[in-house]
C-alpha cells in the first residue's frame, strides 16, 4: 500500500479543482482556512472563499443562505465546533430547511488529540445520526475523500464529511466504485468481519493481516457512510461471519457501532459483536496515535478483540 497525503490535503486540492471548473462553488470558513488546507484556494480564487471569522453558528447560517442563492457551498470548520456549536443551525437551517450544504468537519475525531477534549469530535456521528436529512461520511483514504467531495457537489441534500490530519494509505484500486450509503468490501474472509469507518479502516486491514498469519481470515468493510448505513452489506457480513467487530474514531455510544447493533438486533441476526471506539470517560489526551493505542484501537488490539470473540463463538 502506498502512503498518500492527509485527507485534509486531499480536500484542499479537490475543492480547488472543483471550484476552478465552477464559479458557483464557494467555501465558507471560520478563521479555519489554514487548518482546512485552503490557503492555496484563497490565493487562487479569492472571490470564491467567504470568511466569517470565529463564528460557527453564523458560518452555517450563511452557508444555508448562500445555497438558497444558488451557490454550491462547502462550510468548513473544525468538526468539534461545527457539529456542536452550530448544531442547531445544522438541524434547522441546513437539514430541516433542506439546503444541500456540504458540511466539512476538519481535524475530526482526535486529530487534535493533544489539544484536549474541547477539540475532539467524538459525538458528531451520534448527534447527526439523530437529525433527519443529512448524509454522514468518514472517508478512509484520499480516494474516498475525493469521491465523497465530488459526490457531494451536486448531491440534492445536506452532507457531512469528516476529515483528519494524518497521511493515509491508499486502500483502493483507482477504479473502485464509491457511492454514498454503499459500503466497500476491501477484503473477504469467512471468520471475522471488521466494519470500520474513516481513519480506523487501515487499522482493521492491518489487524486482518496479523490474523491471517494465524490462519484467521477476515472480511474488512469500509463503511464510509455512517448514515444512511449500508444495512445489506452489514447483514450479509454478520450472516457470513463467526464474529463482527466495529471500529471508529468516535464515542462507543451512538456512532457506527451503535448503528450496526440497531440493525443487527432488529433483523434478528445474532453474532458475537464488539464496538471498538473511545469509551465513555474523561478522554486521555495525546496524539491521535497515542489515544488510539491507549484505547486498543490498534492492529494488535483489534486482532486481540477478534480472537476473543472467536473464542466466544466457539463456545456458543
Amino acid at each position: 500500500m502506498k502512503l498518500g497525503r492527509a485527507n485534509l490535503d486531499e480536500f484542499g486540492a479537490t475543492v480547488l479543482a472543483l471550484a476552478e471548473k465552477d464559479r458557483d462553488v464557494l467555501v465558507v470558513t471560520s478563521d479555519s482556512r489554514g487548518s482546512g488546507k485552503l490557503t492555496p484556494f484563497g490565493k487562487a480564487l479569492p472571490d470564491q472563499i467567504v470568511e466569517v471569522g470565529i463564528a460557527e453558528q453564523n458560518l452555517v447560517g450563511i452557508a444555508a443562505g448562500l445555497t438558497a442563492a444558488g451557490k454550491k457551498v462547502f462550510a468548513v470548520s473544525p468538526a468539534c465546533f461545527l457539529t456542536a456549536r452550530s448544531l442547531e443551525q445544522i438541524k434547522n437551517d441546513v437539514c430541516y430547511s433542506n439546503w444541500p450544504v456540504k458540511l466539512i468537519g476538519i481535524s475530526a475525531g482526535v486529530s487534535y488529540g493533544a489539544l484536549g477534549s474541547t477539540h475532539h469530535s467524538l459525538h458528531d456521528f451520534a448527534v447527526l445520526r439523530a437529525i433527519h436529512n443529512v448524509t454522514v461520511v468518514a472517508p478512509a483514504d484520499n480516494f474516498e475523500t475525493r469521491a465523497a467531495l465530488t459526490s457531494a457537489l451536486d448531491y440534492p441534500a445536506p452532507v457531512y464529511i469528516r476529515l483528519g490530519k494524518r497521511p493515509m494509505y491508499d486502500l483502493h484500486e483507482p477504479d473502485a466504485h464509491f457511492e454514498f450509503g454503499k459500503a466497500i468490501v476491501l477484503r473477504d474472509g469467512p471468520d471475522v468481519t471488521f466494519v470500520a469507518t474513516g481513519e480506523t479502516v487501515i487499522l482493521a486491514l492491518q489487524a486482518a493481516d496479523k490474523l491471517a498469519e494465524e490462519g484467521i481470515r477476515c472480511r474488512v468493510i469500509s463503511m464510509h457512510t455512517v448514515k444512511p448505513l449500508d444495512e445489506a452489506a452489514l447483514l450479509a457480513a454478520a450472516r457470513d461471519s463467526k464474529a463482527l467487530v466495529t471500529v471508529e474514531e468516535h464515542s462507543v455510544m451512538g456512532g457506527l457501532g451503535g448503528a450496526c447493533a440497531e440493525v443487527l438486533l432488529q433483523a434478528g441476526v445474532h453474532v458475537p459483536f464488539r464496538i471498538i471506539g473511545i469509551p465513555d470517560e474523561y478522554t486521555m489526551t495525546g496524539s491521535q496515535e497515542e489515544i488510539f493505542r491507549h484505547y486498543g484501537i490498534t492492529p494488535e488490539g483489534l486482532a486481540q478483540t477478534a480472537v476473543g470473540l472467536l473464542a466466544v463463538a466457539a463456545v456458543d
Partner: peptide
Amino acid sequence: HNTGALGHGLSVAVGLALGMKK
C-alpha cells in the same frame, strides 16, 4: 426558509444577500 428557533434568520439572510452580490 424554515424558522422558529430564534436568532437564525439573519445569518441566512446575510448568506442570501452575499450570494446575490457575488
